[in-house]
Design a protein around this nucleic acid. Structure first.
Lengths: 136, 136
DNA sequence: CGTATATTGTTGCTAGTAGCAAGTAATGTG
DNA sequence: CACATTACTTGCTACTAGCAACAATATACG
């Protein structure tokens, strides 16, 4: 199954790569920053460590990605009051708009990927992804 | 759904990253080469273009990955007889052994990921992945 | 209280990833 | 035979990513 999952990830990349790169260029985002905007939730603040963990990145790399996003105005960062080692990051309005744009892209991708599935099969797929998500 | 898929890919990475890196180090493979061994099928020969397409990479990048694998003895490449522009690549015995090793890793990952699912749910997930694969 | 330890994050460094543009060689087309 | 196309290759640049070393804060413990 995991092999099937691997193939699936590649297939999705093949289908969506063009669309994704277009939006990245449009927003001036690198691939990592693109992903980061998704991982940074809508409004809640997140620490560097949490961000690194969610992105499955080393702390150093995560810090640099965040730094770039702050420099570009997508993210606001401030030191925590409780623990002055940590910085709390959250999306700026510009960041939220970009995130919205990304989700539109994802829906377009989904339409392209799932176009060949009838309603019943589509429901099965949705259900299965939900199952996997909870299993993790 | 696509967002769920995105989260899923990250979650799988979090679960399997360590295992994957261990095997890459063991075999002296970079991440791209690791993926390439999966994409290069068991015995069949494949052209550079086909390889690039399957890996969802540009031709130039794909060529370099293949070149490295040839240099390291995982892949054998020869010019095609029919079209002397194309090179045909296939796994060497060393490459096949490494590929086998990678699939063992993938099964370990699968066990870790799907450990929390009962037989019925697992079947649903397998079925859904198959559906998605055919839809692509 | 004070020292050892752990956590959070930053910076320099190096290796790996990846597309673009320009070039080459072989093939197909009119 | 000229021209376009295809299948690469190479040089270049930017991005990705972990490691090691460092700094600052927080926590545990004698």
């Amino acid at each position: 199954m995991s092999r099937r999952f691997f193939e699936l990830v590649l297939a999705v990349r093949r289908k969506c790569q063009g669309n994704e790169e277009r939006i990245q260029r449009e927003l001036g985002l690198s691939p990592a920053e693109f992903n980061a905007l998704i991982v940074l939730g809508e409004g809640a603040e997140i620490t560097g460590c949490q961000f690194a963990e969610r992105m499955a990145l080393s702390l150093s790399r995560a810090g640099r990605v965040l730094g770039k996003l702050v420099a570009d105005g997508y993210v606001r960062a401030r030191p925590s009051d409780k623990d002055r080692r940590t910085t709390l990051a959250s999306l700026t309005p510009k960041g939220r708009r970009a995130r919205q744009r990304i989700f539109e892209h994802m829906e377009a991708c989904e339409a392209r990927i799932c176009g060949g599935l009838d309603a019943e099969r589509l429901a099965q797929v949705r259900n299965a992804l939900e199952l996997l998500e909870t299993a993790l």
